[in-house]
Design a binder for these strands. Structure first.
Lengths: 209, 209, 209, 209
DNA sequence: TATGAATGAGTGTTCATTCAT
DNA sequence: GATGAATGAACACTCATTCAT
């Protein structure tokens, strides 16, 4: 009987540690983040960390992969709802550009890993696999959209999905904390959609002309 | 009395150290790169590094900023040649997408810094200043191009330049060593140009249809 | 939860480190004393030192100032007891000449600092402040003694206190480990008292004549 | 023919190095003084030092012993002039108290060595031998003075000479750069003489009463 | 289960000394 | 003779990890 409650507490504390780890690893990098600092942020003593994660490395892995899985799941969910391909893509772009804001640190961490592939080969591998699922799904939806005449047929779906993911990553990287409040933020999001070359962005386009 | 011009030799060795530093910092991050490793890579003993750079930090600064200045200079040169705005932009895109390949490590290093702004505030500042010069110049050329009817007038130049820089960064980040040989590489480069919404990509577009 | 009172153990170990540091700093100087050597002397590993003192410099400061405070307190106590000024001075001289023996290293350390004022400006400052309290008190007691006719009125108290402190320091410096067993030790101590020019050292003086 | 001139230049430069070394060793201690700093002070390059002294240690030895020999010679000369013992002693005190001012650094260096006997056993040995010559001579003169009735016969010459040397050392140590301008400086010098317990300081003493 | 003191290998940096020029 | 770049051993300090309490 006592167990379930304890188990709950354990999970809660584990989450707190992970949360703190994400922030600190993202801000300071792996080596420059001490386990003691993470512990301090969580409000526990240095030894405690090692009761939840076998090593600093394991904690880092979890800090990178667990949030990524969450984010991917949400993004994929957008593409698996009901709706025309162009609607799905639009929803996904919307969702992901919001992620950039909500999950800044989580995404930075992923980029941090991708930037140092040789250093973190195993993690890079997993992150790329996860990204591949994403691009594959986008490609699939996009190709369907092309067939339905919703997207310009002259572009290769593989290229389009890569270009979009690149833009998404680049936006997170180049823009600072206050992206959302940037005057160009809304336009940038729309331009991400433009990248997909939808066939009728006419109504929109006219407004500006 | 005074030794002749070994100033030349000094510069040469300094460059060798910087070069090695760029590679190792980019691959392993700041803390995980030991000065001894850099020295070893160059083929000198640990102490020698400090005859050329006062500290590891100073070496890192130089490794980030000096190549960046080079790259920026080359990119800006493209935009200041003779030609119509659309030609200039096209040249720049061409030039920069090649940079991604030649200067992989140099660019990764810049992204590494931007990913950890709190950790490297001074460097971030300088990198952003450097980037601003770039985006400002692009904006300027782009606006001129819009007036001349070469680009779609419905997009804000500020947004366009940001979107392009983001894409550029994202491409460097998401794609691996062998980008150039990737089947989609050529298409991706063209799509970067498409992002600028030129008004006559017609001839091209037709080919694929 | 919180461990009980190992505060006691901490203090004990801190004292052991300080003690060892005093000995080694006094014998070898600051730079030539490695923290590893101190650790070894205490019987702990190098890292442990830094759990008790934030830096080698801080340890040095403590090694200089803490014992000095102790010694000063004991000396001042002599001058604040009941008794005529000449009795107080006599007690103090007695007490301090014994200190030279017991606290050889502690005093050497103080002299080491005073000898390198430019190198240790902050410490010098504090040591001089501490010394000033001592000379001021001696002056005060001495002046009272002069008024009561116990000391020769022709000498300035400020000069006398300085001369005494100088002699005391010089004795510590010039004489070696085995001062106490030196045949002139007893006489030297008495001569320190003679320096104060008491008006009735007659009985004593006669003995020798 | 060319040789003598070069030899002269060599000696001059050697002296300059030694001079600079005395100042820096006295101010910063042995380990904290780099040979490069000495070289810089002299205005030569690091390697040059080693053309005049085989090692840093040898330079230190010379910096301690050579000036000491000078000072001792001058002091001893005072005691070997014509005159009554009390006159000789008086001259010597005068001479030495001036040394404290002129040779601050040279004397500090000697005290620095004496404070770290275990670290510099050989040097300590030589310094003590040199000091012994001094105290022995003083004892000798003092004893003669006692026989002639110039000094109080109740004090042991051995003790008196030690007390004086101690005071001398202590004065150099406790007082700062501006001793000479200190209001008590003159009185202090006189009190050093008082320490010898001359039999007719009466005229002086009366003045103050 | 949490604690937090101890560990000890690892890193940036310094510096006396050498030696080719 | 003077130079000054290179050397490489040494040291202060850090930090992931352990373990007795």
């Amino acid at each position: 009987m006592a167990r379930p409650i304890n188990e709950e507490k354990r999970q809660e504390r584990r989450s707190r540690i992970l949360e703190e780890a994400v922030v600190l690893f993202a801000e300071n990098g792996y080596s420059n983040t001490t386990t003691a600092l993470i512990a301090q942020g969580v409000g526990v003593t240095p030894g405690t960390i090692f009761q939840y994660f076998p090593s600093k490395e394991a904690l880092f892995y979890a800090a990178v992969l667990e949030p990524l899985a969450d984010i991917q799941a949400k993004s994929l969910a957008c593409l698996k709802q009901e709706g025309t391909p162009s609607e799905l893509i639009k929803n996904m772009v919307e969702e992901q550009f919001n992620h950039i804001y909500c999950y800044t640190n989580e995404l930075r961490l992923v980029q941090y890993v991708l930037g140092q592939r040789i250093r973190f080969p195993e993690l890079t591998q997993k992150v790329l696999e996860s990204t591949k699922v994403m691009t594959d799904t986008i490609e699939c939806v996009y190709a369907k959209g092309q067939l339905m005449g919703e997207f310009n047929k002259s572009f290769s779906p593989a290229m389009i999905s890569r270009a979009y993911i690149s833009l998404l990553n680049g936006v997170g990287l180049t823009l600072g904390k206050n992206i959302i409040h940037h005057p160009e933020w809304g336009n940038l999001k729309e331009h991400a959609l433009y990248l997909f070359a939808p066939t009728q962005p006419k109504e929109k386009a006219r407004e500006f002309e």
